[in-house]
Structure formats: structure tokens, C-alpha cells
């Protein structure tokens, strides 16, 4: 398994700029083919794609969804002079 830090060469850098569009399914077919050709030859970029995708997935799947606590709602309605509409 590779473990290193790289400063991406221009050939990789150009394609790395397209990765978010690629992962969001918004990359043009032509650039998609170019990127996938590059990925079949460049292990470093494959690792970046895989870990970038995993990063986004982890955030979407695991980061907590803070719920509005009842006491915060109560104080909000009080601050807005809307107590009579509290159920």
C-alpha cells in the first residue's frame, strides 16, 4: 500500500480539478473518458478519487443531524412574542 505525499504533476492536477464534478455525476462524457483513462494508469489519482468519495460519503452518512431541542424552540417563540401559538 502506498503511503506518501505528492505534489501532483500538471497532467494529474488538470484532472484532479474535475474530480468533484466527476463524483457528482456532472462531468462531460468526454472529460469522464479522459479521467477514467488516466485513472487506469495512475494509482495515486485512483487513491485520491477513492478517498475523496469516501470522505463525502462519511460526511453525508455519519455526521449528526442536530435536532431542535424543545427548550430552544420554547425560547425562540418567547423571543418572537409568539407564545400563544405554542402547541
Amino acid at each position: 500500500m502506498s503511503k506518501k505525499t505528492i505534489s501532483p504533476p500538471p497532467s494529474c492536477r488538470h484532472l484532479l480539478d474535475t474530480l468533484s464534478d466527476y463524483l457528482d455525476g456532472e462531468l462531460s462524457a468526454e472529460l469522464c473518458r479522459e479521467l477514467e483513462r488516466h485513472l487506469s494508469d495512475c494509482e495515486d489519482c485512483r487513491v485520491v478519487v477513492d478517498t475523496l468519495r469516501k470522505t463525502i460519503e462519511l460526511y453525508r452518512e455519519t455526521v449528526a443531524e442536530p435536532q431542535l431541542p424543545p427548550d430552544v424552540r420554547l425560547r425562540l417563540f418567547h423571543r418572537l412574542d409568539l407564545e400563544e401559538y405554542l402547541e
Partner: peptide
């Protein structure tokens, strides 16, 4: 320009590691 990327493939880690409480705090 000149930004650096660390090349380590950690996708193979088990879910228990990727989604642990400590990992969630680190994500935040």
C-alpha cells in the same frame, strides 16, 4: 499551485473504525 496530496488508501478500514464515535467527532 504546488499543493500537496497525501496518498494513503484508508478506504479499506472497517466501518467500526470509519464510523466510530471518535471518528465522528474528528469529522466535526
Amino acid at each position: 499551485e504546488g499543493f500537496e496530496l497525501e496518498i494513503v488508501d484508508w478506504c479499506c478500514l472497517p466501518e467500526s473504525e470509519l464510523m466510530s464515535e471518535e471518528a465522528r467527532r474528528y469529522l466535526d
